[in-house]
Write a protein that binds this DNA or RNA. Structure first.
Lengths: 302, 302
DNA sequence: TGACTGCCATGTCTCTCTCGCATGGTCTGT
DNA sequence: ACAGACCATGCGAGAGAGACATGGCAGTCA
């Protein structure tokens, strides 16, 4: 049951050439080698594949039956080779991408567009979800790359390495008529009396986590889970809320955004999570992500 | 480029088991053997197929790409094996059958029906034509079996063996009102004054060949190439003609048939022409042909 | 923290398999 | 009858595949 693939190669060559000698010449083998290979295949199949004639050979019925199968196998193997090669050269393949929701507002779509421009053959699938989930998926090999924000579990899971992309400033969203609207920057202390709209009951789970750790205790009455609801409340001047810079582009026009000082609410560190041995496509996409991130928010480390 | 097929077997087993060790156990190999096989395939493909983890292995993207191809190849080879096996057991396959035209009146269709009854999986294709042509086709391997009558070229071509099926009596076709109609047998001498309808200009090319060689010189005015025309003329009492017994069943009812003495127009020797190394299906069909021939015209050798 | 366990890689040996060379047999065409 | 073409086969050298044993690495449990 060794059944080397060369047997089929020899079979096809002989079927094509109509003679062992000619096939051997075409394959760069000796006639005796081809004769033995065909014999091996015949033993393996339990049937004579060629009728030996004084002038060359001719396919038997078994040979005629086997021929299309052998051709199909040869073609399929060639297709597999070609597909693997196109994988190496980024002419094809699949990139399974993950990202947390506010990264999909501008960063990931832009990177995706740039990547598609350069490597149109690679299919990119994107899944949204919380960063922790993506870290797990990358570790499990079910995602090739993920854009993640900071997670409570500081060290990434084994087999996953984080590549820093950008430090995202935080903005404060205010109603257009708000007294701070129109300012370029604001300190958190100036907003201590505002009504804050948060995403979770526990402030530690929100973007406030660093500020809370520093002793900031805002008035939090309103709870809204999605951006639409949050910004709707802001527009109605029911309160104010934090907005990550990456989501700024998708904010409704009747809401004003004001930069908040990084000492009060620090930059959010956005990373790409890749397996320790990333895919060729993942590496390429990581490069595009870096460029896009730099174009969006230039690194202005204080 | 040896690329034994076992490589794919190992690859599939590992992909299925998720571990080299488990796959080796399933295949009855050692872990080291599977490790080397996978490595060979990876070298061959120029890509890592598995990601080595502390707990087993996991498919890389290249592995995921290769997997369906490998499965397809395995299935295709299995299909080829199955088809070849079914060929041996007459559960499938193709029988290319040839026959001269008057054999297709009753002998060949009956045999075909009996064969289909026993081996419904075998597809039988039938081609009509003159016997000499079929001998050539069988010799060329383009037909698996042929039913032929006597041919001018006495010895069959090399690689073709003739198997005697039956000796076919010759009949005389007469108009219903003919003076000889209704008789059981007739001698050629009694028909010397009749107008004979022949198929060819040269009498030597017709069923008369033996009689002509014996000195018989009939009046031949009418020439008709096909049976419809011949028997039409006979029915109109324009003349009489010879009809081989195998075609008797398909003669129109307003024509009478009378046996002619074998000393005058000898039995026509009907044979099956098979290659020296016939197909399983051809051998089986030959047996059915023998039975059918015996049932149609029992061998009454004088 | 240290021993243990499970898993894969690899060095080495052996045995089989394969290929090339040369020869022999068979059929064809001159 | 002889030369030519073609396939089968005996023989020897070389490569390849598998088994065995070992080593390295990571996770697990006491």
């Amino acid at each position: 049951m060794s059944l080397s693939h060369g047997l089929y190669e020899a079979f096809l060559a002989v079927a094509r050439a109509g003679s062992f000698t000619a096939a051997a010449h075409a394959l760069g083998y000796t006639q005796s080698a081809v004769s033995r290979q065909v014999q091996s295949l015949e033993d393996e199949m339990g049937a004579e594949l060629f009728e030996r004639l004084p002038r060359g050979v001719r396919l038997t019925e078994a040979g005629r039956v086997l021929l299309p199968h052998a051709e199909a196998v040869r073609d399929r193997l060639a297709a597999a080779r070609a597909e693997l090669a196109s994988l190496r050269t980024l002419d094809g393949g699949l990139l399974r991408l993950g990202a947390f929701s506010s990264a999909t507002a501008s960063l990931v779509p832009r990177a995706q567009a740039a990547f598609r421009e350069r490597h149109p053959g690679v299919v990119v699938t994107r899944v949204e979800g919380p960063s922790v989930k993506h870290l797990g998926l990358v570790a499990a090999g079910e995602e090739d790359l993920a854009v993640v924000g900071p997670t409570p579990a500081a060290p990434p899971p084994p087999g996953v390495t984080l590549h820093h992309l950008l430090d995202e400033p935080m903005l404060v969203a205010l109603a257009q008529g708000h007294r701070h609207a129109g300012r370029r920057a604001v300190r958190l202390a100036e907003l201590a009396d505002e009504e804050w709209i948060t995403g979770h009951e526990r402030l530690e789970d929100t973007l406030f986590r660093p500020a809370v750790a520093a002793g900031f205790r805002p008035r939090t009455g309103l709870l809204a889970h999605d951006w639409i609801a949050k910004l709707g409340a802001v527009a109605a001047d029911l309160g104010i809320t934090l907005v990550p810079a990456l989501a700024a582009a998708s904010v409704r026009p009747d809401v004003a955004l004001v930069t908040i000082h990084p000492d009060d609410v620090p930059y959010r560190r956005i990373c790409a999570a890749a397996p320790s041995t990333p895919t060729v496509a993942a590496t390429a996409f990581l490069g595009v992500l870096r460029e896009t991130a730099e174009a969006l928010i230039p690194p202005t480390h204080p």
